[in-house]
Design a binder for these strands. Sequence first.
DNA 1: ACCTGAACACCGTTCAAGT
DNA 2: ACCTGAACACCGTTCAAGT
Lengths: 212, 212
Amino acid sequence: MPLRRSRIISAAMELIEREGLEAVSMRRLATELGCGLVALYSYVPSAEALLDGVADAVVSCIGPAPAASWEDQLVAQARAFRTAARAHPRCAAITASRPARSQARSRLRSLEHALAALRAAGLSRPDAVRTVRAFAAYALGSVLGEAGASAPSAASTPATIHGRLEPAEFPQVTDLAAELTRQEPEADFEFGLRLLVRATAALLSAEGESAA
Amino acid sequence: MPLRRSRIISAAMELIEREGLEAVSMRRLATELGCGLVALYSYVPSAEALLDGVADAVVSCIGPAPAASWEDQLVAQARAFRTAARAHPRCAAITASRPARSQARSRLRSLEHALAALRAAGLSRPDAVRTVRAFAAYALGSVLGEAGASAPSAASTPATIHGRLEPAEFPQVTDLAAELTRQEPEADFEFGLRLLVRATAALLSAEGESAA
DNA sequence: ACCTGAACACCGTTCAAGT
DNA sequence: ACCTGAACACCGTTCAAGT
């Protein structure tokens, strides 16, 4: 099995998911791959570039999401994003934390499709762009929020804390403890998505009226 | 000037904003503070704990945002979150990337206020929780998206790329180049916020009807 | 061409000791 | 009590050399 850039990046991703980012180093990766440390530098110019490669790999496994209506289009893209992120949660966190260096191509495709759907539905140019950005922000925040909530140190979430919470100071949190504790990330995600879809629909009909 | 935990963390935050996370190390911090390396360990148990302290400091400088209506309450909190994040953008990215370890107290206060506002407005228990989560996800994603877009390596954003883009493959992106290039993070943020507020209002009136 | 060991300048953390 | 230097086991990266 020859040493290839893709093989190195796959190994890095596996190691990240298995033991976390702090376990990854060029040296460790070399022993993991059974090759000399210096050999890696022929395929990956630096440790930084390695993580860029990982970030790339995560976004490039976001499947295309063609759909008929603009609602389905935006919802499907948001779900595809979330699915990809959940497939490699720890790698996804890395992706989010480093500004889109390359990754550009596949992101551009998504952007194109989303914009096309919204423009075809009748949204104005600036509103189409801003709506896509709002959906993107929501999807990113959801994924990262989930990752944070399900992280190893989840020992200090409101759920665990509220046991020793004075109801007088936090009446709502105390009262809604059951709802706050329940872990339904999927349903939470879909709820917010529907919120955004409905608001966009309202925007569309409002613009339709003012144009008519 | 004695060595205090708060002084160490402030110095770390300054250094992070000035030179980035990769410049921070216990050794570097010690020379920056003019003290011995080992002295730091009396106030900060480890390098990891140092970053937890930084994360804490960022969220604890989110100002309270009391407001009359539920709309103002949720909008004000989202803005306060964004303001705090923009005050220390690089530290904020660190905060987002590490699951809420402590940070709990001030986050809990925000949660309490948001829930109170939505419950008072008449939202059901599960919907109140999910609405707050949707707003939080949106705010988090917005802040992180902005940080990524304005990062040093912003050389590969659609804006720069689209110059050599075939309009045939990316008609929408080409056509909307002006809107996509324009950097108005504030307006983008407010747009999405209004979207969520309107959708929540619709939800409220829908629940009101079904309850009546 | 492709891989290697040895070296360099860094890390975080701990120890045993100083005042 | 508070601080210290020296040491240990790690890093990423580069060099000059091997096949």
